[in-house]
Design a protein around this nucleic acid. Structure first.
Lengths: 264, 264
DNA sequence: GCCTACATGTCGACA
DNA sequence: TGTCGACGTGTAGGC
């Protein structure tokens, strides 16, 4: 990575720096005073203030205020990027094609710019406990849900309704549709499960079927709704699932945290 | 805004710079090579690579890779921020209290740091076309949904089900529950409306009631589901709504774009 | 503090 | 390409 830094550059200098950076797909970080106009799926106006502006090599644009996680304005990617001096304002325009969205940053003062060229980042990103992993752990260990449960399929397609996380048969031979949530389940999760069970019932009118929502916790309205629909809930012990995943990872000689860091 | 810039500072220098910045709540922008470990609601490992790291005055932390809108790791805010040199690695730790989450950035090389002090940004942010505004426009102009419609309430509470966007009565005196979406409506939107209508029916068993989904477009599965539930759809002409909103804004002498920019 | 619904959500996966 | 569902979603607003 090669970086160039510009301290309080006059706007005409900043214009040239940005143009070069945009055309050569460099990363730009700019501290400046600006106002912003956005027009696309929504439309917003942001008055003058001091901001952090980021333009990435792929055309992603972020305008950050001094607080918080979220950018106040942004463009996930852009097809056209331009910098143009208009009197005493440096106008940065970002145009996105689909959906058609325009972001216009009107810069009145630049405090600092860093341009980075040739940033290299090919590292792997490992997500250790996402919903799919939890589901797969439950598929391998259905006893965590209920003794005697036998998994028939995961991601089972149910007509137009979508995909049930797990489809199983219980100790009494009844069909079981299982919806897994990684976080506290609300009304939406219950509705989702209801939809799957409904479709299964319609497709298999004779078959006895249960619906089980598996989650670390339930909101109170969700519990009421579950009862109303005669669906069931099993508490998911996340700590236990994590432990199992860790053990299996160790057993399969996946890189541990330490070895990963050392290697990279 | 006062900025300080450090080009390729040795790690011990970077450590001091970060410590000072964290303790005095300055904004930090750092281009560096690092690996990242996160542990909290989930757990992730990111190998070594060149990244843009941002630490905001409120403790928000963002780690950006060279592409895309989303940070690869982050902290929406943090209670504890520390920088500590450990051999030839500069460890930046961010601890969030609730939920308890730890972000650890292991920096092996710093290419550039900008520290900004006293960033001032008090500007107003105007959101011009969010869902609430569309809904209010429809409340004022229900004829955009259907002639003869008379609005009774907006954000009408419906038992445990939540809030219906608009509650109205039609030309024949039938009750109408209306759900407004500003983007293409999918299955979820239909389920939401169904829930509202269901609750209304239960609470008013005698009353004839219709459910209308108002959105600029419908996905095909959503349309099927609507028919199945005997609910209705009205296309929302966003352009027309925008026009109406603009005219009303002009009429009420809200600051226009131009006057806003000039004033601020 | 819990819960709900919105968001310019973004993003990946799959038909 | 359209559609769906997860996300460490974040965030605002009610109660």
């Amino acid at each position: 990575m090669k970086t160039h830094t510009y301290i309080s550059p006059p706007l005409p200098v900043a214009e040239l720096v940005l143009r070069d950076a945009f055309s050569r797909r460099k990363l730009v970080v700019m501290l400046c005073s600006c106002s912003v106009i956005y027009e696309g799926r929504s439309a917003t106006i942001l008055g003058e203030g001091e901001r952090l502006v980021i333009v990435k090599p792929d055309g992603a644009v972020l305008v950050h205020r001094p607080r918080g996680y979220s950018p106040v304005n942004w463009q996930p990617d852009s097809q056209v990027l331009e910098a143009r001096l208009d009197g005493d304002t440096l106008i940065v325009k970002s145009l996105r094609a689909k959906p058609r969205e325009l972001l216009e940053i009107r810069v009145t003062r630049v405090d600092a710019i860093i341009v980075a060229e040739g940033m290299v980042d090919n590292a792997e990103f490992q997500e250790l406990i996402d919903e799919a992993e939890i589901r797969d752990a439950l598929v391998r260990h259905p006893e965590l849900i209920e003794p005697g449960l036998r998994v028939v399929a995961k991601e089972k397609k149910l007509g137009d309704a979508g995909y049930a996380d797990i489809y199983a048969v219980d100790g009494q031979g009844r069909h079981v549709i299982i919806e897994v949530k990684r976080v506290t389940a609300g009304r939406e999760a219950v509705e989702q499960l209801r939809r799957y069970v409904d479709v299964f019932r319609r497709e298999n009118p004779e078959a006895p079927v249960r619906g089980i929502l598996v989650a670390p916790a339930l909101t109170e309205p969700a519990q009421k709704l579950l009862e109303e629909y005669k669906l069931e809930y099993r508490k998911l012990d996340l700590r236990r699932v994590r432990k199992i995943l860790e053990e299996e990872r160790r057993a399969s000689k996946q890189p541990s945290l330490l070895s990963f860091v050392k290697r990279s």
